[in-house]
Design a protein around this nucleic acid. Sequence first.
DNA 1: CGAATAGTGTCTTTTAGACAATATTAA
DNA 2: TTAATATTGTCTAAAAGACACTATTCG
Lengths: 224, 224
Amino acid sequence: MSIPEYHDSSGRRLVDYPRPSVAVDTAVLTPDPERGLLVLLVRRDSATRSDAWALPGTFLHEGETLAGAVLRSLDQKAGLRGQAPRQLYVFDDPRRDDRGWVLSVAHVVLLPPAVVAPVAEERPDDVQLRPVAEATGLPFDHDGIVEMAVAQVRAAYAERPDPERLLPEPFTLRDLRRLHEAVAGRRLQPDVFRRHVRDHLQSTGEATRGSVGRPAELFRHASR
Amino acid sequence: MSIPEYHDSSGRRLVDYPRPSVAVDTAVLTPDPERGLLVLLVRRDSATRSDAWALPGTFLHEGETLAGAVLRSLDQKAGLRGQAPRQLYVFDDPRRDDRGWVLSVAHVVLLPPAVVAPVAEERPDDVQLRPVAEATGLPFDHDGIVEMAVAQVRAAYAERPDPERLLPEPFTLRDLRRLHEAVAGRRLQPDVFRRHVRDHLQSTGEATRGSVGRPAELFRHASR
DNA sequence: CGAATAGTGTCTTTTAGACAATATTAA
DNA sequence: TTAATATTGTCTAAAAGACACTATTCG
């Protein structure tokens, strides 16, 4: 009969170690057809109405996962219901936060504009959407987080069609291409794009109707 | 005049939150010309001489960076002086460790065999080198860490020549290719490899002497 | 029919890879 | 000279990209 080891390999009890606070900071990105990738910023101190905007974040609560903390912070700070945050990096400089010893785990979440835009419109004093190129001068390590988030999302979308499943199925190749253009931040040739993604998609046999030109074939994702 | 905010945005003091222990676990990889990528394992409980091997790890100490904890753990557990650990992933299941609430930040370190092999030979009871394909059945999330570490290193080496600068300069293309073969785990064609990396290298104008065949040009890395 | 959009044919350029030929040295 | 290794030439196959053409619908 054995009890769990509440000590580390040198015999020191775990509870005797000082422990850091752990925070999460999240770059919520949304692809806008007009302005490319936008990042969501929240006012850092809503009491003072200061001009300091930052990425939403929070401290990790007991028994909570990092993803859970990310989703909670998005709900609290922006009234958003996100999903599937991805880890980017742990910022660990012991002196990065003058409130104490705080590790911050940076995350990225990609959400459809239909979900994010209304929040920014309803609460302009608290929530802002800004093109990623113009999101600089942020506090802490937030400039770097935005950069990593953009790189992560662009790499994922260059790899395969809509990996985050932002588009509701079924969709046309035009819809898919507009989404990818917003993520990439540049125009993509329709024919080249089509051949890029075609093998990963499955035709529904249906087509759009009532639109201006030739009807477009409707697709869904092939796998699964 | 203002004091630092020792509280979070909801007014709760930081110190009032329960905080997790933070650990680091590290996959130390080394490219072996014969056996491909090897991973370093340490005996989990050196007192009992149990057959449980695992990745070296430790708890983060106060005022320490994650990279610092990684290097300290390698020094303590294997007498290794490493450098430049890279973060892979944070494992955050609140119940992953029955000793308590422990977050683990997985890392990867790539070291030259000349540094790692002697350690394993001198302390076979504590330290083991195993081909990555045979490093399964490890405790905690260690199987997954090894997998991520291998993927990370292989991707980096497929991208550019010896990004971790394991080879002392100057080196021949043969030396460089042998290293990349060990990382990739397969043979690479000399001519194809040469054209792949040539643009990233800078000739020293020197050549090897006294070897069997035609002398090989000596190179260094081009950038910087 | 004409405007508008969807989709395909085909050519060029680039890249990766394979294979063979040439180059240079030690023994 | 021969064995051994380094380096380059060249061909083929695959992929990416550009451009023009055909197809189908609405008004």
